[in-house]
Write a protein that binds this DNA or RNA. Structure first.
Lengths: 347, 347
DNA sequence: ATCAATGAGGTGAACGTTCACACGAGGCGG
DNA sequence: CCGCCTCGTGTGAACGTTCACCTCATTGAT
């Protein structure tokens, strides 16, 4: 019955080593101003007692901030999940800790509830602002502690330039590129199965992918069909896309992400329409599975992991201005043509 | 330029409300022994100053522990991701915070590095022990702070009963069920594309899915082919499975998870083998996309989210013995027959 | 009228760190 | 030989809470 005896503190180590608590602190933090002999004594005491520093006490006492909280609505979505991975990697490299807090979309939490999630006032925070709960959290933190927050989301180049707390990729442009590609293939127009927008009570949230798609169609003088709204899940997408695959006039569908695209492929198959013969399908995000569907999915690659890393770097800069502002260096979204897209069938 | 003035503390509120700091604490924590008038004064001061409690200070001062750290090697894997979701939901319902720390498989971190990840000694921790780094972390924590840790992993009923810190599902049994199903369909034997095992320097880690599969074959007196080892990624699986799909003798493959199964479907397609006509494929985990592949994947459903929730409940019980031990109540793994499995082709 | 019980609130220490400073011992230049 | 700088180390106060205990009214029963 290993009794859970209290963990050793810096004072216990100090007593055992015959030095002051401050000297122990210096050793632990690698200060140069401590004699080699003393250091050894302290180190020995540390291993003997199994001492490990308490990070809570460290931050409380005003030591350097070494934690970041990620606010997101859904870690099962590929984008947020990959970005989280990037944040975590970058944080780990610097020995920062990562805390995640999931925003419940169904929940009617007040603004106070959102900030109550943070471990303390001024906690460095990264928000995945791709949907309504995220946009809302973004606004709350922008009002509360703008200097210690960064938001990740899809944004145009202008928005990015105007908001120093913003990190993201211009996926409107990427959607435009994909749409243009489909038109060039000979399709009269392109339909759009859309992910939920972040519009709502809070300004700034828009459907960038849908906008890029619509812009290209307008510029090309093509009819702009009403985008078909879908939820985030494959099941919802499968239901939503039915009218589209049933309509023989529809020859090309740009999907808001790869999961929606998979649902579309499935629906097309069940409706007896061949892909890409009768129907071209383009996804978004280059989710790992997309290269292995049959036929393999044409999609738009996005390096979310790098964006996550960039968000972390930017946050460090914003929290501590002595750290230089990072220059965003991740690749632009890029169309990856695989097997689900091709010229429309001859009439 | 909203100067980041220091956040209000409990003392500031006390001063403004004309009471002691302790009274503020009582109000914040909803103690009944405070007069209504006083409470109102305090609440007013709180909103006026925008006070929010500092969770770090709270835990430091010996308040109830309200955070849990999750140690995992890979959040992009469906199992850990879903379990994490379950943990997070359960934690959120109780206003606990969740911290995640990713174990780098490539990293040669020492045992000390692993526990250095924890915010403090005795931090309640849940470990995803499905692979080598996870098993290792499990062992370290078991040695260090057994009373404040819980591990999630695939285990047999006996192992579960023997280890009070263990939560999981018997996926060996599920693999057995799937194998039996394929044999009953008429296949002479079943091949296995295996996920990495957790065996290695640390005992206890085994390949439960592979064991369940092999056991059924032996019991049925069928040849037990060498399992084909694959990495976790789809790309690795695609490479690993090539010899299997190229071999016309192989008529049924049980895959270690749905991603491996997808790779197998793709490889089979490219090798000109029809599914399920020439080759039956069964996956594992019932990953969301699996119902929407073409053909739809036969797989084994596992309710990882419930397991995550169960792990959290068990952890609470272990940290605070006044909380009753939860009874594991999640559904057993269950075979879901869809379209990738069928009787072997006639010779 | 007295006394115990109860309700409302205050006081001081503790949690485990870091920060700002103070202090003595050598070394070195003048 | 004196003053000053640097090195190594110690002292005490903070950080923002909670905990354990104390005090002072008020109440109600005896």
């Amino acid at each position: 019955m290993a009794q859970a005896k209290k963990a050793a503190s810096i004072w216990d180590v100090a007593r055992l080593a015959g030095v002051s608590h401050q000297t122990v602190s210096r050793v632990v933090n690698g200060s140069p101003r401590v004699a080699a002999a003393t250091r050894d004594k302290v180190l020995e005491a540390i291993t003997e007692l199994g001492y490990r520093p308490n990070r809570l006490a460290r931050s409380l006492a005003g030591g350097a901030v070494e934690s970041v909280t990620v606010l997101t609505a859904d870690i099962s979505l590929y984008g947020p999940e990959a970005a989280l991975r990037g944040i975590e990697k970058a944080a780990r490299a610097l020995d920062w800790s990562v805390q995640i807090s999931v925003l419940d979309p169904a929940d009617t939490h007040s603004d106070a509830d959102i900030i109550a999630r943070l471990p303390r006032a001024g906690e460095p925070t990264i928000i995945m602002a791709h949907d309504e709960p995220g946009m809302r959290a973004k606004q709350v933190l922008l009002d509360t502690q703008p200097q210690a927050m960064v938001a990740i989301g899809p944004y145009t180049a202008e928005e990015l330039a105007a908001s120093p707390w913003l990190v993201g990729m211009d996926d409107g442009k990427a959607a435009a590129e994909a749409t243009r590609y489909l038109l060039d293939l000979g399709h009269t127009t392109v339909h759009h199965l859309a992910i939920p927008t972040s519009t709502g009570t809070f300004g700034g949230g828009r459907a960038h992918r849908a906008e890029g798609w619509a812009r290209v169609l307008r510029e090309a003088g093509r009819p702009v069909p009403e985008p078909v709204p879908s939820g985030w899940t494959i099941a919802e997408a499968f239901k939503a896309v039915q009218p589209l695959v049933a309509d023989p006039e529809v020859t090309a569908i740009l999907c808001g992400n790869d999961h929606l695209a998979l649902a579309t492929m499935r629906a097309a198959h069940l409706a007896g329409r061949s892909v890409p013969g009768d129907l071209s399908i383009v996804g978004f995000d280059n989710t790992p599975f997309s290269a292995y569907t049959t036929p393999a999915l044409t999609t738009v690659n996005q390096d979310f992991e790098s964006v996550g890393r960039g968000a972390f770097e930017l946050l460090r800069h914003r929290v501590d201005s002595s750290i230089p502002r990072p220059v965003p260096g991740w690749p632009e979204p890029e169309l990856i043509v695989r097997e689900t897209s091709g010229p429309p069938a001859e009439h």
